[in-house]
């Protein structure tokens, strides 16, 4: 959400500088938004999450939720006229092709490919690079990872930067697609993202993808198939989330873990 707003501000700045080429603007917006959010994520991790790593997980969850509130309220209160929705500029080509009754918009394809590239990129980063190995090692066992010479602090900061950067990318894509941004859009999206990651199973990128698609599918089924009203689609989707948690309490793709007593 903040990422989208930073992107928006960047766009305003670039327009003010006088760059009119949509492609340059798009790249500028993406680079600044993703970079700024990655930095913000690392700062948050350094000063709020790392000092608390021995605290119960609930405290950390609550801190991040509260931090979301802080960011959201800051945008509402301190961004000029932040409490009203803002139009996000059209930076993608607006062509569309019609196949019979089905219309394909060029921006949908670009966004789809963009999203796919990010997913593949993150997957390669986590599973194929040395850095990804460090991240997975830290996630599995902090102390052993340290013994193996992994810089713990740096890895955690990097992970947070990566996550926030990818979220900022998603935010900009969301703004590009709906052409409107709003200070409160982050909350529901954040909760949906969190739920999707959880029902997929933490610690697994495929789980997050699966969860994301499943949630969207639940919403769509709720909108199409419910006999009474499509307004209940979110009710249906969150009901589905709760039901899925009963069926697979540790997510669809369960984390490989054993409990030490």
């Amino acid at each position: 959400m903040v990422g989208t707003f930073v992107g928006f501000t960047t766009y305003l700045g670039l327009s003010a500088v006088g760059i009119d080429n949509a492609f340059v603007q798009l790249v500028g917006v993406l680079v600044v938004a993703v970079g700024a959010m990655a930095l913000l994520g690392a700062v948050i991790a350094r000063y709020l999450v790392l000092p608390l790593k021995s605290a119960p997980p609930l405290n950390i969850l609550l801190i991040t939720l509260m931090l979301g509130t802080v960011l959201r309220e800051s945008v509402r209160l301190f961004y000029p006229d932040g409490s009203n929705p803002k139009p996000f500029p059209y930076l993608l080509p607006t062509d569309s092709w019609a196949f019979g009754s089905f219309t394909l918009r060029a921006d949908s394809i670009i966004l789809f490919i963009g999203g796919l590239l990010v997913i593949i990129g993150v997957n390669v980063l986590i599973n194929k690079t040395k850095m990804g190995l460090a991240i997975r090692a830290v996630a599995q066992d902090e102390e052993t990872a340290k013994c193996m010479g992994i810089n713990y602090t740096f890895t955690v900061l990097l992970t947070f930067a990566l996550g926030s950067g990818v979220a900022a990318f998603a935010g900009v894509m969301n703004g590009l697609y709906y052409n409107e941004i709003n200070f409160s859009m982050g909350l529901l999206l954040g909760v949906i993202g969190f739920s999707a990651a959880i029902i997929g199973g933490l610690g697994n990128i495929y789980g997050a993808i699966l969860g994301g698609f499943l949630f969207a599918a639940l919403q769509t089924v709720g909108a199409v198939a419910l006999p009474f009203s499509s307004a209940y689609k979110d009710v249906f989707a969150f009901g589905g989330v709760i039901a899925l948690m009963v069926w697979r309490p540790t997510g669809l793709i369960a984390e490989k873990s054993s409990e030490r007593v």
Partner: peptide, 25 residues
């Protein structure tokens, strides 16, 4: 039932989902 079967973050998501479900409903 979901609360008993889940733990930690997974348990949190159950109640978060219920909170949003309730308000939307």
């Amino acid at each position: 039932l979901p609360m008993l079967r889940t733990r930690g973050h997974y348990a949190a998501v159950v109640t978060i989902a219920f909170a949003i479900l309730f308000k939307t409903f």
